[in-house]
Simulated scan of single mutants.
Amino acid sequence: MLVAATTTCGSEFHPIVFFLSGIPGLESFHIWISIPFCSIFTVALLGNTLLLYVIKTDATLHKPMFFFLSMLASIDLVLSLTTMPKTLCIFWFRAKEISLEACLVQMFFLHAFAIMESAVLLAMAFDRYVAICHPLRYNTILTRSLIVKVGLMASARAFLLMSPLPFLLRWLPYCGSHIIAHCFCEHMAVVRLACSNTRFNNIYGIIVAFLVVVLDLTFISLSYAKILRTVFSLASKDEQLKAFGTCISHLCAILVFYAPVILSSIVHRFGHHIAPHIHILLTNFYLLFPPMMNPIIYGMKTKQIRERVLHLFHRKSF
């Protein structure tokens, strides 16, 4: 039986240690589940590292679109490293203990960098809008200073939205179970363990989700509405396909990121009769899938990156 060490503060108990359960109901399959998890993690690390290396070393890729792609790859690396090492330790070594402070740090980085990824996808939509709707002004609008400002604003928004959460959770009383039914410290999974009124935490979480997912998707949709209007105004079918073809990679990245998030949210809100391990597998899916798929999508769909990667491996084979 797992017993958490605690310190007292009046009549309330503040946990020093939480216990991550992994995937409840599938404990006997943890070793087997770790195989696809570890494979996806490895592909994500190698793919995003290779993507960053190719963009850094090839001067022809030092363009706004690829700078945004570098931001996306860096965020994906942090997201993967924030969750997967601890998850694999649970699967392989049953190392379920995590201190309160480590749990809050993991939660902060997990949610902050997910918010940053959403902001970068929005910035990439703006990049495609300028490239197609205002091609002659592309270099004058998307300057390096603007790209740096966008990156700083994306980081600032994420850190400002997430900064209150660790402090709000740090002082909640956890006088019941200290077992988090998850592979990592996700906000709502920790909130459920508190034995006091958590209404403010729930409302704050909903507000943050609205500000990030709904607003970012709205602005992305507006960008693509303008892009489609410009594309359909082009004279020939070939010009239309060529213009819209430059957006395919970004549209795939949007689908890969937002579809699992929305699906997981719907299941979480309305799927009360669905087994808990399904909820947790879906959550892991939306954290694992984008970091793995983004390098593959851009490697396959972006000619400059594909050629540079092929040249790199061809050179090393001799």
Score class of each variant (00 low, 15 high):
residue 4 A to C: 10
residue 13 F to E: 05
residue 14 H to E: 05
residue 16 I to Q: 14
residue 21 S to T: 14
residue 28 S to T: 13
residue 29 F to D: 00
residue 30 H to K: 07
residue 32 W to M: 10
residue 33 I to W: 05
residue 34 S to A: 15
residue 35 I to P: 14
residue 37 F to R: 01
residue 42 T to W: 08
residue 44 A to M: 07
residue 46 L to K: 13
residue 46 L to I: 13
residue 50 L to R: 09
residue 51 L to V: 00
residue 57 T to H: 14
residue 57 T to L: 13
residue 60 T to H: 12
residue 62 H to N: 06
residue 63 K to Y: 09
residue 65 M to A: 13
residue 70 S to K: 07
residue 70 S to R: 12
residue 72 L to Q: 13
residue 78 V to A: 14
residue 78 V to S: 11
residue 82 T to F: 11
residue 85 P to S: 12
residue 86 K to W: 06
residue 86 K to S: 07
residue 87 T to M: 13
residue 88 L to N: 04
residue 90 I to P: 08
residue 92 W to M: 06
residue 98 I to H: 04
residue 99 S to W: 05
residue 100 L to T: 13
residue 100 L to C: 02
residue 102 A to C: 12
residue 112 A to Q: 14
residue 113 F to H: 14
residue 116 M to T: 08
residue 120 V to K: 15
residue 121 L to Q: 06
residue 122 L to P: 01
residue 124 M to E: 10
residue 125 A to L: 01
residue 128 R to N: 06
residue 130 V to L: 06
residue 130 V to W: 03
residue 135 P to F: 04
residue 142 L to T: 01
residue 143 T to Y: 01
residue 149 K to N: 12
residue 150 V to H: 02
residue 154 A to S: 15
residue 154 A to F: 06
residue 155 S to W: 15
residue 157 R to N: 11
residue 163 S to T: 15
residue 163 S to D: 04
residue 164 P to H: 04
residue 167 F to T: 08
residue 169 L to V: 07
residue 171 W to P: 00
residue 172 L to I: 04
residue 172 L to D: 10
residue 174 Y to C: 05
residue 178 H to D: 06
residue 188 M to I: 03
residue 188 M to H: 08
residue 192 R to P: 00
residue 194 A to G: 00
residue 196 S to Y: 03
residue 198 T to W: 03
residue 202 N to T: 12
residue 204 Y to N: 07
residue 205 G to M: 09
residue 206 I to K: 10
residue 207 I to H: 00
residue 212 V to C: 14
residue 215 L to I: 12
residue 215 L to N: 14
residue 215 L to R: 03
residue 216 D to G: 04
residue 218 T to E: 00
residue 220 I to W: 10
residue 222 L to Q: 13
residue 222 L to M: 10
residue 223 S to V: 02
residue 226 K to R: 15
residue 230 T to E: 15
residue 230 T to M: 12
residue 233 S to P: 01
residue 242 K to R: 11
residue 250 H to C: 02
residue 252 C to W: 09
residue 257 F to D: 04
residue 259 A to M: 13
residue 259 A to D: 02
residue 261 V to L: 15
residue 261 V to T: 12
residue 261 V to S: 04
residue 262 I to R: 00
residue 262 I to S: 07
residue 262 I to Q: 00
residue 264 S to F: 14
residue 264 S to I: 01
residue 265 S to Y: 11
residue 269 R to V: 05
residue 277 H to Q: 13
residue 281 L to F: 06
residue 281 L to M: 12
residue 282 L to T: 09
residue 285 F to D: 01
residue 290 P to Q: 02
residue 290 P to C: 01
residue 298 Y to S: 00
residue 310 L to E: 02
residue 312 L to Q: 02
residue 318 F to W: 10
